[in-house]
Write a protein that binds this DNA or RNA. Sequence first.
RNA 1: UGCGCUGUAGAGCAGCGGUCAGCUCGGGGGGCUCAUAAUCCUCAGGUCACAGGUUCGAAUCCUGUCAGCGCUACCA
Length: 683
Amino acid sequence: MSDKPVYKRYTVTSALPYANGPIHIGHLAGVYVPADIYVRFLRMNDEDVIFIGGSDEHGVPITIKALQQGVTPQDIVDRYHGIIKKSFEDFGISFDIYSRTSGKTHHETASAFFRKMFEAGQFIEKVSEQYFDEATGQFLADRYITGTCPHCGFEKAYGDQCEKCGTTLNATDLIEPKSVLSGNQPVLRETRHWFLPLDQYEPWLREWILEGHKDDWKINVYGQCKSWIDQGLQPRAVTRDLDWGVKVPVAGADGKVLYVWFDAPIGYISATRELTADWEKYWKDPETKLVHFIGKDNIVFHCIIFPVMLKAEGSYILPENVPANEFLNLEGEKISTSRNWAVWLHEYLEDFPGKQDVLRYVLTSAAPETKDNDFTWKDFQTRNNSELVAILGNFVNRTIVLTHKYFEGRVPAAAALNDSDNLMLEEMRLFPGRIASSIQSYRFREALAEMMNLARLGNRYLTENEPWKVYTSDPVRVGTVLNLSLQICAQLSIVAEPFLPFSAAKIRHTLNLGSYKWADSTRLNWLPAGHPINEPELLFEKIDDGAIEAQVEKLLNTRKANEALQAKAPVKPGKEAIGFEDFSKMDIRAGTIVEAEKVAKTDKLLKLTIDTGLDRRTVVSGIAKFFNPADIIGRQVCILVNLAPRKLKGIESQGMILMAENPDGTLFFVTPGEGAVNGADVK
RNA sequence: UGCGCUGUAGAGCAGCGGUCAGCUCGGGGGGCUCAUAAUCCUCAGGUCACAGGUUCGAAUCCUGUCAGCGCUACCA
C-alpha cells in the first residue's frame, strides 16, 4: 500500500440489492456489514467519504413477479424498496444515501450515460431475430418463453436454460415455444440492439487489472478477472426489448430499455447526484478512491463490464479495489430467496430487538472472506454468549461495577505505575494500528478479532491485579488498576465503533465520554481522575436456548413447507393421442443391470451396463440422486433399445432405462416383474 | 466441458519455502470470586484433502486426482 497514491476522498459503493425480496444475512455478511465497517472507520479518520447504496429495480424477474401477482412492476419494487431501506436503517448500515433505480434522477443519468457513449460511437449495432408475441405486441425476453427442451424433452424449459437438465439454451432452440404472456406461439421478428464491444478493451483490461492490480486485489477477484480476459471477451448487448427499465434514448428505439446490468451500476452515480450537487468530484477526480463492495457473483460486472463502461464514457475514474466476498450458507444449505431459506433482516430485527451488534459481530467473525461459510443459530448463540457477553460485555461491566463499588462512580487517580502497568499500556498502544491496518486491507474478520483481544487484555489485567483483594490493604493501588481498566474501556469504545456502533455508543454513555476520532485511540488517558461515570448497564445479554430453538424451528417449518409444496406439484397433463404405429416403433426389452458406476464430475449420471438379452450395452442414466450404483446391480429393468445412441459426458449411451417419475422428481424403476427373462419384449 | 476460488485440530479461521504448524470457540484440569456460573492459568486435540514431483528443507512451489462453491454471457 505504501507506494500507492494518497487519496483525498473515498467513494464506497455496496452492491445494489435486487428489489424482488428483502435483505437476508447473506447480503449483510458479504457486502453491507464489511462496507459499513470500512466507511465508519474512514469517517473516524476524518476522511471525506460517501457511502452509496440503493435498490436495483429493473430487469425481467421483477416483471415476471409482477405478472404472477397481478400487480405492476412498480408495485413490486415499491414494496421491497421500502422493506429493504427501513431494515438497513434500523440495522445501522450508515449509507449517506440509499436510492433506487426507478427514480427520475437515475433514469436521466443512465440515459445521458448511454447517449454520450452512443454519440461517441462506442456501441455496435446488430439486427437479430427474436421471438415476438403478436397477441401482446411485444418482444419476449428469454425468461418469457417456455417450450420443450431439445436435450431432455422437459416441457417447461425457459428460453435461456432448461432447469431440468441444466443445459444453456437459446430461445430459438426450444421445441414448440410458447409465450408466457399469452400462451401463444411467438413468431420470429427482426430487432435492433446495441452492443458494448468488450473485446476492444481487452488489451486495456490486461494492463489495468492483470498488471496494475496483481497484488492488491483479492485473489478470488483477480483470478476470476483473469479467467474472463483469457477466455476472450465478446461484445455484449446493452439493450433489451422490454417496457420496464430505462428507455433507450435513441430515435427508433421504441419499446427498448437499457439492459439491467448496464443501468444498475450507473445507479451508484445517480445516487451520488441525488446526494450532492458536488457529485462529480466523487466520480471524476483521480484523487478519489472508488471501492465497490460486492458478492462473488458480481465480480465480472464490477471488474470488467462497468469499468469498460466508465472507460468508454471517458470522464470517470475506475474502481481502485473491488473486495468481493464469497457466499454465506444457512445451516448447511444455500440461502435462497425463492425457497424462503434465509434469515431475513427485517424479521431478525423484530425477533431480536436491540441486538443489531450481535448479528454484526457474528456475521463479521464468520464472514465468507476467502471461502463460503455457514451461518448456524447455534454458532450465533455461542458467539454471543461466550464472546460478546463473556469477554467484551463482562470486562466493561466488571470495571464499571468495581469503580462504583470502591470509588462512588468517579474515575480514581492513577498513582505510580509498576512494570505490569507499563507492559499493559504498551500493548494497548499497539491495538489501534493493528486494527486499522487490517481494515485498510479489507480483513475485517482479523480486525474484529484484534478488537476482542483488547477486551481480553483488560480481563487479564484485572484478574492479575485482583483489585477486589488488594483494596483492604492498598486502595491507592486499586485506584491505579481501575483507572487503567477504565482507560481500556474508553479505548474499546473507540476501536469498536466501526464494528459494533450501538455497543460503542453504550460504552461511551456509561463512561460519560464524548466521541473520539481514530487518531485519539492511542491517547490512553481519556478519562481524568474525578470524572463521573454512569451506572453500569449490560452491553450484551445471554441468548437462551429457547430463542435459538425458535429460530431453528422456523427454518424447519420452511423446509417442511418447501417439501410439501414439491409433493403437491400437480401430475403432468396428458400428452396428445398417437397411433399404434408410433407406439410399436419402440423396442422395449427386459434387461438386467450388470454393472453400475458413477460418472465422474456429475451429480446425476450413472454409467450402467445392461444385459438386454440381445447384447450387453452401456447406458448412461440420470438417476444417481436416487440410487447407489452398488444397490442396483442385478436389478431387472425395462430398457428402450432402439433409441438413437447419444453421447453424455463423452460416454455413448445406447438406450434408455424406463423410469416412473413423481411430480417432485423422485424416480422409480419400471420392472418387468418376476419370471421375465432378459430380452423379453415389452409391449 | 472449460475456468476461478477453497479444502489446516470437534467448529470457525491464520500461516503460503526454513525456529516445536498458530489463534478463537468448544472439551479436560486448576485458580479466583469484582463480574451476565462470567474471568484468569493450564492440558489434550492436526500424517496441514489425496497421490506423485522439485528442493539440503514443503502445509507453503509444480503436476495429477477428489470434494465444496461460483462463473461460463443476458444471470442480478
